[in-house]
Structure formats: C-alpha cells, structure tokens
Amino acid sequence: MTSDITLFVNPAAGRRRAPQAAQPAARALREAGFTVRTVVGVDAQDALHRARQAVAGGTGALIAVGGDGITSLALQAVAGTGTPLGVVGVGTGNDFARAMGLPVRDPAGAARRIAESLKGDGGREIDLGRAGDTWFGTVLAAGFDSRVNDRGNRMRWPGGRFRYDLAIVAELAAFRPTPFRIRLDDGPEQEIEATLVAVGNTSSYGGGMRICADARPDDGLFDVTVVGPCSRTTLLKVFPRVYRGTHLTHPAVTVHRVARIELAAEGITGYADGELIGPLPLTVRTVPRAVRVLGA
C-alpha cells in the first residue's frame, strides 16, 4: 500500500461546502500518516482527466469530496482499476455514501474511517452498473423522474432544490405514462406502459428516495422497479411512500431482479447517480466487484 493518496474535490458541492470539507479531511488523513494531494478540475471533463491521471500514476486511493456528482466522476476513474474509492459525503444528496454506511457531512470522521480501511481491510468490494461506457453506483432512472431532471436542467430560475420542486409540478401537469420496450436478461422484449423504470444497484436516489428499496450492491443483480401506468392522483399518493420504501407493495409497482436490462422509449433520457447518461435506448448491465469502497 502506497501512502500517497488523492483528494478529488468538487468546488460546487453542497453549496460550496466541499472545499472547506477537504481541509479537515486532509488533516485527518495526514495525521494518520498519509501523504495527500488535491485534485480540483476547472470543469467536469478536466476534473475527470486529472483523476484518471492520478489513478494511472499509482495513487493509493481516490477520495471523492462532495456529493453524488463527484462520486460518479470518481467511479469513472477507478472502476475496474484496483484503485480503491473513498467518499467524504458533503453534497446535497449523498445517496452513495449513505448506501455504503459512510459518515455524511462529517469530513474528519469520514477521513478517519477511510484511513482505518486503508490500513486494515482495504475496502469493501461492490458491484457497479454500466450503461454504455458510463459506470454508476446508485440508480439509473428513466421516465417521469428523468423528465423532471430534464426540465429542471433547462430552468434558469430558481436555484437549488426548489428548481426541481417546480419541475415536478410542471411535469405533473403534463403527466402521461410512457410506452417502453424492455428486455430483462435474455428474456423476450416486452412492450409496456410505465410511469418510470428505475435500475438500482443501491436503494436510493434524489437524496433518500428509496425507489429500489431492497437493492444490494454486492449480489451481482439490479433491482428494477417499474411503476406502471397510473393517474396523477395515484402518483401523488404513492410518491411520499418512496422515502420509506413502502411503495413497493402498491399494485402499480413491480420489481425484477436481473443482471442486464435493455430499455427503449421515445423522447426519454436516462440519468444515473443524478447525472445525464443520454437518450434511450440503453443497455444496462451489472459488473460484479467492480470497485473497492473504503470504510464501507
């Protein structure tokens, strides 16, 4: 194990808390005996390039400081390389950090957990999802939820989460089920109508919405939650149950456990870890033991 490790910092995460959080995290890691260098990109592509350079250069670990966005970028750099991932979760959602049982908004505590893992077990091996060339750790979403993301990303006002609250209201006004074509593993192609399809490596997205409540990141399978066609009234009744994971018992909801899924629908984009993947069709597969997560 090399003692040289890399902090990978999102300067905008958590209302710009990440740069401040990087300082106590770095201090805790140095107190544990590690040499710490920091990588901050001018934009996402530059940040990813720098992270990949650090991995190629033999860094002992890549430590993402921020939320699910910077963690997603870090996964693109470390997946399949053998370089372990650490997460100091100080973003808005932190779904990946929570799924791994890691401290959230406690940068020094998270860093101490990472240091103990580096010196001890070397991290927990988990599965990742892959859509095309993009890796993801939590949930890939397509349908109503991705339409909300599309609309929210087009809006210039207001800022923060309120933008997405307004986007939900606007999408509800235009709400309609979507015709999907799906293929589960090597089964036949099916034509269905659905409100949304969520492909879960872990249980939650959107800051604690447990859309794939029973998903486990170490079983080699996705939990695919399909919310079938329903009325606005039904959607509004079911939606609050997502935070507890009790929506899975609703008659409009079905769950499939698969290693691979093909998704196609006109005018629908896919988002994974909250980041845009691209328009459907998409083929999504699970890759067992694709990364080691420190402290998990």
Rank of each mutant, 00 (worst) to 15 (best):
T92W: 03
N94I: 13
D95N: 04
F96T: 10
A97T: 15
R98N: 06
A99T: 05
M100G: 14
M100H: 15
P103G: 13
R105G: 13
R105W: 01
P107S: 03
P107D: 01
G109L: 06
I114A: 00
I114H: 00
I114W: 03
A115Q: 02
E116P: 00
S117L: 01
L118H: 04
K119W: 03
G120C: 01
D121W: 00
G123K: 05
G123D: 05
D127V: 13
L128K: 11
G129Q: 03
R130E: 01
R130C: 07
R130A: 06
A131K: 09
A131S: 09
D133L: 13
T134I: 13
F136R: 08
T138E: 12
T138L: 15
T138W: 11
A142I: 05
S146G: 10
V148I: 15
N149S: 15
N149I: 14
N149E: 15
N153D: 12
W157R: 14
P158M: 11
D165E: 11
D165L: 14
D165V: 15
D165A: 13
A167D: 15
I168D: 05
V169K: 14
A170D: 03
A170S: 09
E171H: 07
E171G: 10
L172F: 03
L172Y: 02
A174S: 06
R176Y: 04
P179I: 04
R183F: 00
R183W: 08
L184D: 02
D185W: 00
D186G: 08
